[in-house]
Write a protein that binds this DNA or RNA. Structure first.
Lengths: 206, 206, 206, 206
DNA sequence: GATGAATGAGATTTCATTCAT
DNA sequence: AATGAATGAAATCTCATTCAT
């Protein structure tokens, strides 16, 4: 359980206005894109002055990097915890991993969109670091797939590639899901889990 | 068969420099994003003067709209033709539709990326028109799914949703595929087709 | 003879507002220093818009570089012509070289000040080029000194060093000379020539 | 004799970080110019916080004024002492004055450069005070020149003007001298003294 | 259709300085 | 005396777009 709203990605960091700035940046980058959003937009959203942003982050690009780092951390933590708390068989673990990922995507749609479509605006070094963090999450899925294939639960001939396909599919949900639409969070998660297991060619549960 | 390189999306339009401008715009928007690319970048890429761009397109936004229209047209045409030339059963048609879509994504990775991540920068009217065109392509897939479900070939309980999931999965290929990488075009298409049919819960062919 | 005012360093270059911008930049940099003057100051002085400056020069630093190049060219040309038109003996040639240099300093006080105190704000490459051009002028003086020493006209034991000392002495005039002050152009030039020949330990003319 | 390094102009002032700040300011203004250096640069160089600077000096401009005052004081003291300790004839006194000046320039090249090229950025009042202090040093030279002319030792027809020319020549040394270069401190001083006496048209010593 | 010059708005970033603690 | 956060102004530079030719 988390004390703050699920849609506020970054909690207080104990340093002045930092969290407000990060959340405002996320919002701005999500709404207008990294290059479409201005530092003024961010400042306005954070309720502070433009120049004050630079007391916290040395550049717009670094600000984006921090936002994405927080997002990745949260996503990784959610998936990891879900896998740890799941049963022992690969199918249960995959199901829980997918549910956790979908939960993150739905709670933080904006962050998911930003993380997938604005990474390229990072500076070289930050981008590499970010990709590495993202790969860590992907590795959690790959391990489950490998376990499932080894144990005969999954019959797909495409191990790692299937994991990647699953992740893209889930992340894409962020682009169209509406909280008040036809599908509830739970239904959505259920669908995605079923797609994922089907892609891995796990025999249907029932 | 197409006489021009598969990586040049827009062929001569019979109007001076128009095609060169459109292709340069695609390249620029793909590399730097719509807001990151400047009209100067486009002009340079097209080998013409900055102000000359405005003899062809009234604004940057309209230029993007035209680029995306061309991309959507080509995608739609490819998928439609593939479906028409396929067999009668839903599985074959789905397989060919996926192969055609994957072919487009691989031939026009940049266009695919631009089409998915820069649409939001269009003006209201253009965006609606674009989304409608995109929906037309999606409808081709939905029809096949409906046919397959009606005929008992596909057992998924999620019809339209599955179609959307398949399309997102395929489009995401544009973000990571490398022409000289491990997977050939054919292998990639084969994988995606298999994922798609699995998601639809079609019994395995063999 | 020069058709333009002696205090306007840069004549029309045949490219729009270029000359006006260069002269305005010289004036601004001279009055407030390179870092103290803003591009707005320059634009205002040139009677054009701020952003238009960047159609002519890619950066403030490059603008300074161009200004200094023009100044150096003019100085070099004046000294060179003076030496060529002078008599054959080293003393006469030195005298004329000094008079020409003093003439430049007086006609273009601002340019002289800028050239000596703002060079350091150039980017690496431009600075080296500038220093090389300045050395060319210095070389003209060094040659005369060498000739004078070889011919016994100058008895200083410090050849090249004396040339440098002379040039610094003359350039420093730009910092205090007032056109309407006690000393006329001619008197000033006469003084400086006498100092120079004395430093070289040439026997007094009379 | 001075207990601190010759390159650290300002000794402890008995007031906390004051000396460190002054020396850091000198360094910063020397390296980047008054307008090019920021108060942050100074703070960093002094190893203290930015806002703490304002506990010592009310403004950047006043900080420059203090730096220059210290530099002028030291220069004046050196020259004055040298003259007092010199012989009675004008030539000896001039020789020692020049040596002292050259010594200062070499020990404090940065301070010399700052003193000559950044004075203009002082506020009106400070500038006048500074110029007055500088004139005091110049007066020391002028007195010697006057004495020499009166006594027939110097035959130059240009008294005061020659003193100024000498001072500019010496100060300019700061712009090019390298401690590890071809000329030692002593050789340099010797050269400058010889130039000075020559300019004053004193008969050669030997 | 094409060019080169121009413009006004706005981008990111830096600055000197102040305030509360 | 010292710190960290904040501010408003101003800096350089870029942008999409227009105009005259």
């Amino acid at each position: 359980m988390n004390s703050r709203s699920p849609s506020t990605l970054i909690a207080d960091t104990g340093r002045g206005n930092e969290a407000a700035i990060l959340n405002a940046a996320l919002e701005a980058f999500g709404t207008k894109g990294f290059n479409g959003a201005s530092m003024r937009d961010v400042a306005k959203g954070a309720g502070t002055g433009l120049s004050n942003l630079y007391n916290y982050f040395p550049s717009k690009s670094q600000l984006l990097a921090e936002v994405l780092r927080h997002a990745n951390d949260e996503l990784y933590a959610r998936v990891r915890r879900a896998v740890e708390e799941a049963g022992d068989d690969a199918a249960s673990r995959m199901r829980e991993a997918v549910r956790a990922y979908v939960g993150f995507v739905v709670d933080h749609q904006v962050a998911t969109v930003v993380a997938t479509s604005e990474v390229r605006y990072l500076e070289q070094g930050d981008r590499q670091r970010l990709v590495a963090e993202r790969d860590a999450t992907q590795a959690l899925f790959e391990e489950i797939v490998a376990q499932g294939i080894a144990g005969g639960e999954f019959r797909t001939p495409y191990g790692k590639d299937a994991a990647r396909a699953i992740l893209s599919m889930i992340a894409a949900v962020a682009y169209w899901y509406h909280r008040d639409g036809r599908l509830s969070r739970g239904q959505l998660a259920e669908q995605q889990a079923r797609y994922a297991l089907a892609m891995l060619e796990a025999p249907l549960a029932n």
